[in-house]
Write a protein that binds this DNA or RNA. Sequence first.
DNA 1: GGAAGTAGGCACCTGAAGGTGCGTAACTCC
DNA 2: GGAGTTACGCACCTTCAGGTGCCTACTTCC
Lengths: 147, 147
Amino acid sequence: MTTTTAARQRAQAKVEYDAFLAQCPSRKLLDRIADKWVTLVLAALRSDGSHRFGADCASEPRPLRYSELSRLLAGVSQKMLTQTLRSLERDGLITRTVVPTVPVTVTYQLTDLGVSLHEVIRGLKGWAETHMDDVLANRATYDNRVG
Amino acid sequence: MTTTTAARQRAQAKVEYDAFLAQCPSRKLLDRIADKWVTLVLAALRSDGSHRFGADCASEPRPLRYSELSRLLAGVSQKMLTQTLRSLERDGLITRTVVPTVPVTVTYQLTDLGVSLHEVIRGLKGWAETHMDDVLANRATYDNRVG
DNA sequence: GGAAGTAGGCACCTGAAGGTGCGTAACTCC
DNA sequence: GGAGTTACGCACCTTCAGGTGCCTACTTCC
């Protein structure tokens, strides 16, 4: 066989590490919020939907309808909006309620868990707003030195 | 033409929203840390590299060598490690120093900016550790009800 | 003299995220 | 009677992050 002891040890470590990663709650959270539309939906539901873009803290969270969300997050495709909402509902971050009106009406609302998640996302937002300019400046400097 | 006024207005809103997203610092940050290895490298550099897996706060941040990182993050490919380190250096989150020893030695170290970013990531970790079980429980319940 | 460590570069490949387009079933407005 | 709205479902297509494998040039260990 061509595999030496050292190589096998590395392979073993790799398997263990992969298993650790698949288990890690932090990673699961990251995968969750890294989703393109997740944070935007959370922010929209956290706001009352009155301002269109960088919805933030907001006066009083109001349940929003599918079509309202669709209009608020103007760039989202119907497929992705539905998919995102389903997954958030599945995780207990939002609730979905169907009102049997003439054309059926569906409203979505943050749960307490969803609100608490939005809090930590606002933490990210804070860092981004104060430090992201530095990062971009560093990036430009680096590119000038190298490229 | 088949495009009505309402349709054109929606298209316009979509373009504006996409432009807003491309500009949004929060989104840039999310894209940055959503990278599979970024948070792991930051955590490894924040720790002194003594424990292998969920490196966290750590006693005293010590600069780590390429090979040390490679062994710590056992699952990472050489390509991805190099790529991740380059991008972090580009953003001014870590520094890269070459020591001209017999075989050349390269060490990586967090900058102040990198440390501050790691702080907000620890915020994420905190939420994940306290709430992720709830999320998984909700998910299981949902799947039982539906599937 | 072959294996292993030093820090990567380069080319190719795949899986999955996300986008596009089309259809629906019932109702309403003009 | 054609278009619009309501909340989606389904199939196809593109893109790219990330992985794999092979290369370097030098040195040291066994």
